[in-house]
Design a protein around this nucleic acid. Sequence first.
RNA 1: GGGGAGUUUCCCGAGCGGUCAAAGGGGUCAGACUGUAAAUCUGAUGGCAUUGCCUUCGCAGGUUCGAAUCCUGCACUCCCCA
Length: 427
Amino acid sequence: MNASLFDDFHDRGLLHQSTDAQRLREWLSTPGRRVYAGFDPTADSLHVGHLVALVLLRRVAAAGHEPVALLGGATGMIGDPSGRSEERNLLSTDELAANVAAVERQIRSVLATAGSTVHVVNNADWMRGVGYLAFLRDVGKHVPLSQMLGKDSVKSRLERDGGLSYTEFSYMLLQAWDFVHLSDALDCRVQIGGSDQWGNITAGIELGRRLRSRELHGITCPLLTKSDGTKMGKTASGAVWLDPQRTSPYRFFQYWMNLEDDDAGLCLRRLTELSLDEIAALDASRQENASARQTQQRLAEELTRLVHGDAGLAAAQQATAVFFGGDIEGLDEATLVEIFAEVPSHDFPLGAVEHDEGLPLVEALQATGLAASRSQARRTIEQGGAYVNNRRIREPAYALRPDDLAGRQVVVLRSGKKSYALARFTA
RNA sequence: GGGGAGUUUCCCGAGCGGUCAAAGGGGUCAGACUGUAAAUCUGAUGGCAUUGCCUUCGCAGGUUCGAAUCCUGCACUCCCCA
């Protein structure tokens, strides 16, 4: 495999800061080194923002080393102040336990195909038994306050009105101790993370030197932001999650599909495992024929497969085809319901379509919420914005009849380009 | 406490006795164009109804054949003088 993890990071724009490059290269020149990244279980799912760290760990594996994913079962009880402008709310222990379990599943799933031994550890396992006094004597004693106060994460918060609590202030000690502990237990001497983690990482490196006279290394990668300055993975309706219950594979796929050209190019380089040659080819295609959107297409495919597997990708692509004007007639009931799962639906009695007059389209549009009133529904139809099973309907008096049922009891209604609703007919 | 201005349809904002469901802009929704983008252009935008009816202009009354427009009272907002 690729001999130099460090150069790989560099070439893909994943390198923000690192400790001494020469020493790092040297350490990583021996295969089988362990490299860790931490994940705090702040929610019951990771989101796109965590994807970078996961991908970094996959690259660690690809380079012939062993990734270590650290779950913050203990640190999650405190809350990392880094990159935060306000004090966090504490999670209950039940919530935390559920989050840890869910996040661990996701991490294992994404790293399953990494092609190397993967270690998943939870810092609660070694923090739980540590007493406060012992921690102060063994760890706190070796961390100068001047150093802690010098960290950006602390400084920026102290300058604000809210300040930060002693609890959050102590967070970096826990993370520093994690690093030292992992170097003891797994001989893991490299920590990677987002650029906001630099302060916490260096705290660990410092502690390793004082406590063990051991040389530890750190690498951070740039945080993902879009060209308009907003955070990657944020949409108007919230974060893009890895959990299919929170963000369906279709919407996950669409998120990447809709990125700006430059952002997509950047993500391709940083998040996918395509070779640099392939990426260069896509860059070129974007220059020549931007409208083909091959970059977005490829990016969406790669990442959806990584997170949701082949089945998830297939579902997303099928849904995409349908949502962008594809034929609905050929699809069976189960597939339809699956594709339109996140679309609003309304139940009608089967009798509504079966009698002579049928069910007026105007009524169906209103009942499903596609139109606020019958008048508006009528207007939409008159203006050519109404579709039944993706076929445009222009007669205001149109009524749904048994012939219109796609599948056995479902009609797909649509207003305009993107608003869909499902009318279900049940006996 | 005194004086003045105001309250309009989702928002801003015209209207000051009939031709007002109410100008104009924004937003929103559709259509065209397009790269599932941006910009632009077009149409629509109270409700119900296949040319008509019903409900809206702070609230409650009144004048009038007829009121968002006039009068009275009430509520709220803003400005000026004390």
